[in-house]
Amino acid sequence: MIQKELLDHYGAVEKRYEKSDVIFEVGTNAHYYYQIISGEVKMNNYNEEGKEFIQGFFKPGESFGEPPLFVNRLYPANAIATEDSVILAIKKDLFKQFLLEHPSEAISIIENLAQRLHYKAVMAAEIASEDPEHRVLQLIDYAINHFDLSKDDNGYLVDFTRQQIGDLTGLRVETVIRAIKSLEKKQMLKIINRKVYREI
């Protein structure tokens, strides 16, 4: 996360969005760098049949939608607030100036984008698999290794709803539920008070 004080110095403004508000739409121009102060944002697409595919969820401290800022392309996905959110926005030209004057922050942005590319490559390979259990477990293990999941005596808490797991793996919710129950029977997951845990 880039410190708010640094971004403020380059003209960042706070924007407030209510749950379900659209921050930007697929096919529109990128004008701002966005970083979440509070709330949550999802990026998604819809296919011709109207089925939603979620590119990812973004939480406080995270940024989203950066690639079009650097290649002058249109947004390839929508960004929607999944809960009431406060987001820092800084104009593209000012953000590029900031990166030129703060190379260590530029490296952090590159590392963040590289991690997302790695995630997409891993999940693209998994979605090609016909094994729902493997897809679900791969998503959970990736989240444990690369995201800040909380851990207690039960293991790592999987901070995704069944619907979100389905959207991220290309599976129906019913299939996700069956896969999780099967993985519980195989003692690869725990379900405690409807919450899913993974021990590693």
Rank of each mutant, 00 (worst) to 15 (best):
I2P: 03
E5A: 13
L6M: 09
L6Q: 10
L7F: 07
H9P: 00
G11C: 05
R16K: 11
R16H: 10
S20M: 12
S20V: 06
D21F: 04
D21H: 09
D21T: 08
F24T: 01
G27F: 01
G27S: 07
T28K: 14
A30G: 10
Y34M: 03
Y34S: 04
Q35K: 04
S38R: 11
V41M: 00
M43I: 07
N44V: 08
Y46P: 00
G50H: 08
F53C: 07
G56A: 10
K59I: 11
L69N: 07
L69P: 03
P76C: 15
N78Q: 14
A79R: 01
A81L: 08
T82N: 08
D84T: 09
D84H: 09
S85D: 06
V86I: 13
L88A: 04
K92G: 06
D93M: 12
F95Q: 01
F98I: 07
L99I: 02
P103D: 10
P103H: 07
P103T: 02
S104W: 03
I110E: 04
E111W: 04
N112D: 13
R116N: 14
H118A: 10
Y119N: 06
M123T: 07
A125C: 08
I127V: 12
D131A: 07
H134P: 04
R135V: 05
D141E: 15
Y142E: 12
Y142A: 06
H146E: 15
H146D: 11
L149E: 03
S150E: 09
D152R: 03
D152A: 06
D152W: 03
D153T: 08
N154Q: 13
G155F: 00
G155Q: 02
L157H: 11
T161F: 14
R162V: 11
R162A: 10
Q163Y: 08
L168S: 01
G170R: 06
V173K: 12
V176W: 01
V176K: 00
R178L: 09
L183I: 04
E184S: 09
K185N: 15
K186D: 12
M188K: 15
M188I: 06
K190T: 05
K190I: 05
